[in-house]
Every structure is written in C-alpha cells, then in structure tokens.
C-alpha cells in the first residue's frame, strides 16, 4: 500500500568511517536534542542505543581481523527509511507514513502511543518518551532524514558534517552505482554486498562495510518486506474469515433450527431460542 517510489537516499561507508561521531553530534544540534545521562558501558560507544533524545548513534564493535588482530567496526544506527516500512504497515492510525521523496515520517498528532511500531521495525528504531506524562504528551521519536533541511535544499546534518566522506546523500540508484564502483575498485576493502539494496524490500540507507554485516550489528533480513505475511492476513484472510463466519454461522443456525422444528420438539414455536438472553 506504500508508495515504492524512492528518491533520496544515503550511502554509509563503514570502511571510510573513523568513528568520530561528528554525525551523532550534528544530529543532536540540528534537532535540538538534549544530552543524555548515561553510564560507561566499557566502550567508546555512548549511549547504548538510539532513544527519544538520540536519533542517530554510532555503534562501536571490536571485530576480529583475518590476521587475528582486532579492528573497530562502526555502525550507523538510525532509521533506515525503508522503501516498504514495517512501522508504517503496523501503525493502526497511520501516524507513520512514507513520503514520495523517501523519508519515513511520524505524524505525532495522530499517534495513540500503542508502541506497535517499535516492535514491528526490524531495525529497532522508533523510540518512546518514557518520562513524559499525560500532560506533556509522550511521543514516538526517530530520525526524520532532516526533512526540514531537505525541503530547504540542504543535505541532512549528518552528511554535511562527516569529515571522512563516509556519508553521501543523493539519488538511490546513483548511490547504488557509487557503492558498486567502490566495491569493484577495492574488493580487498569491502564485503561484496550492499546492505539495504534488497533487505526487507530495500531501504533508503545503503551500507557498505569492511566486515560482514552481522558483525557490524545489522540484522540478517531477507528481501521480502517483513510485514508481508501480516499484510496478507489483513488483506486476504481477515475479509474471508469475516464473510465466511457471518454466512456460515447464519446458515448453521438456520439448519439447526429447522432440524429442531422438524423433530417437532418445539411444538411449532420457532422463537424458542429467543426466549431468554
């Protein structure tokens, strides 16, 4: 049901990334997000995951190299702006929606706070304001692709800030071509795969990486959108069950009633079943 038109996209090159976290800070600055109180988790990474105040997080993982040594692997953890977003499919009131330009946005005025989108997202991206009461109105928060900057003709804040050229903004098809070219030019640098090209129906965020993507922390996903079965249930099974039950039960009632009347037990009183509620 969601438009599969995909225009804007972003390429994240984990080989080029230095883990400076400039993007993470730029995201906070542009979106006026407060700092989080955190504790040391034994890594440079901070905080542990995206949250309502941290929409983009650089995750640090130590990964074993082929020669036995250790190397850092940096993962960009933020909304992937899926082409067929599970969060949009899951939201009962259509508070999440996919724009034609690509970004997946949240229409807060609609949201009822059921948090089903948080479960549905295969990347564990949407977050909730757990500390806001009824009067402040808790909201679902996630990366919005800097849609305000895009409409002003600017790049997303993270892309503009990246000093290492690890982030690139542009048309999805062109970025796929760029990624393919980089892998071809330096096959020794990259795993031969563009994550997000097909995963979960394709995403607007495309990743290339020096280490296998599961080691980078990306979930292993097939190319079908993960909501496919659920949507089949909603679009095909549910209407069939609805009609089938209504017709079947009415028919059954009629047959049972007829049989009881034929057996003469009810002495001509056809309303026997209606006597008591």
């Amino acid at each position: 049901m969601v438009s599969v038109m995909a225009r804007v996209a972003m390429l994240f090159d984990a080989f080029r990334c230095t883990g400076c976290r400039g993007c993470q800070v730029a995201c906070k600055q542009w979106n006026d997000l407060p700092a989080e109180v955190t504790h040391n988790t034994g890594s440079y990474q901070n905080p542990p995951r995206v949250s309502s105040d941290t929409w983009l997080l650089m995750q640090f993982r130590e990964v074993e190299r082929e020669d036995g040594g250790l190397t850092w692997a940096f993962r960009r953890y933020a909304c992937m702006h899926c082409l067929e977003p599970a969060c949009v499919s899951a939201c009962p009131v259509g508070a999440l929606y996919k724009t034609e330009e690509g970004p997946v946005l949240h229409h807060n005025n609609r949201c009822i706070g059921c948090r089903y989108c948080m479960l549905a997202c295969p990347f564990e991206v949407p977050t909730f304001q757990w500390d806001k009461g009824l009067f402040e109105g808790p909201q679902i928060k996630k990366c919005d692709f800097c849609v305000d900057r895009l409409s002003a003709g600017m790049e997303p804040a993270c892309v503009q800030t990246c000093p290492a050229g690890a982030l690139m903004f542009g048309d999805r098809d062109e970025l796929i071509a760029v990624a393919e070219a980089r892998i071809q030019e330096h096959p020794e640098r990259y795993v031969n795969h563009i994550y997000g090209k097909d995963e979960a129906g394709g995403t607007s965020l495309l990743y290339i990486s020096p280490v296998p993507f599961q080691q980078l922390g990306m979930p292993k996903l097939g190319s079908a959108p993960i909501q496919k079965d659920a949507e089949d249930i909603m679009q095909k099974a549910t209407p069939a069950v609805l009609v089938g039950m209504l017709v079947g039960l009415s028919g059954l009632y009629w047959v049972v009633k007829r049989r009881q009347e034929m057996m003469g037990k009810n002495g001509g009183s056809g309303t026997q079943g209606d006597r008591e509620a």
Binding site: M1, S89, A90, P92, V93, G94, A95, R110, Y116, M234
Partner: peptide
C-alpha cells in the same frame, strides 16, 4: 484514522 494494513487496527 484508518490503516487497514495494520493488525493493531483490527485488534
């Protein structure tokens, strides 16, 4: 507000 794709809508 309807989203008939959503199981939560049916629930």
């Amino acid at each position: 507000f309807w989203n008939t794709d959503s199981v939560m809508f049916e629930v």
